[in-house]
């Protein structure tokens, strides 16, 4: 995850590391448990050194990270603004899988349909995970919305695999042999 995410979550008001962590958990639900606390503090340290965040010590106990209150610097504010305006989207690996099928089919190294089946099984297991997690989140919650995004993307991938299977399946009598 990009460090701009933590930076942006600080924009609401200055807060301690554990409060930032709680904001993440509210938004992510059970997925938040997969991030470790260390990751949050390491990122905050980096942001501080980069001058995007400044930290004020709350008490004399300077050794404890929990006593630090983090806030955005002017540079941090500017970076958050840039990040919010940025239009980026992760690239799916569609071409790689497509070329895998083409290569396997051309060289007769492997059965493209078997490759598709294996891929489908893996995506179905991921979909199962996402569904299980979605069922645990309250209806209409932020984490439920995040999980819906994961589910819809997996569904789209599974539908494409179905199209691949139809295209790569040899004529009926060969596959239907029992």
């Amino acid at each position: 995850m990009r460090q701009e995410v933590l930076l942006a979550l600080l924009a609401k008001e200055p807060c301690r590391g554990w409060e930032l962590r709680a904001r993440l958990n509210d938004a992510l639900g059970s997925l938040g448990e997969e991030m470790n606390d260390g990751q949050v503090y390491v990122t905050l340290g980096r942001l501080e050194r980069a001058g995007l965040v400044w930290a004020e010590l709350e008490s004399e106990r300077r050794d404890r990270a929990e006593r630090k209150v983090y806030a955005l610097t002017a540079a941090g504010q500017a970076r958050v603004g840039e990040w919010l305006r940025e239009v980026s989207w992760p690239k799916p690996d569609v071409a790689e899988f497509h070329l895998k099928l083409v290569a396997a089919g051309a060289a007769r190294l492997a059965d493209p349909v078997a490759i598709i089946d294996a891929q489908r099984r893996e995506l179905l297991r991921r979909l199962r995970d996402a569904q299980e997690a979605a069922m645990e989140e309250p209806v209409g919650s932020r984490p439920a919305l995040l999980l819906e995004g994961i589910v819809l993307r997996l569904q789209a991938d599974l539908r494409w695999l179905e199209a691949c299977e139809t295209a790569w399946t040899p004529p009926r009598q060969i596959r239907n042999k029992r």
Partner: peptide, 27 residues
């Protein structure tokens, strides 16, 4: 199922435990 016959069967037990990765939370 295709054309009236079963063409593939899969047991779906066990998850991947990689949901965070799917959400883009890792790396």
């Amino acid at each position: 199922m295709r054309d009236g016959a079963f063409v593939d069967q899969t047991r779906l037990t066990g998850g991947t435990g990689r949901l965070g990765d799917l959400a883009g939370l890792e790396g």
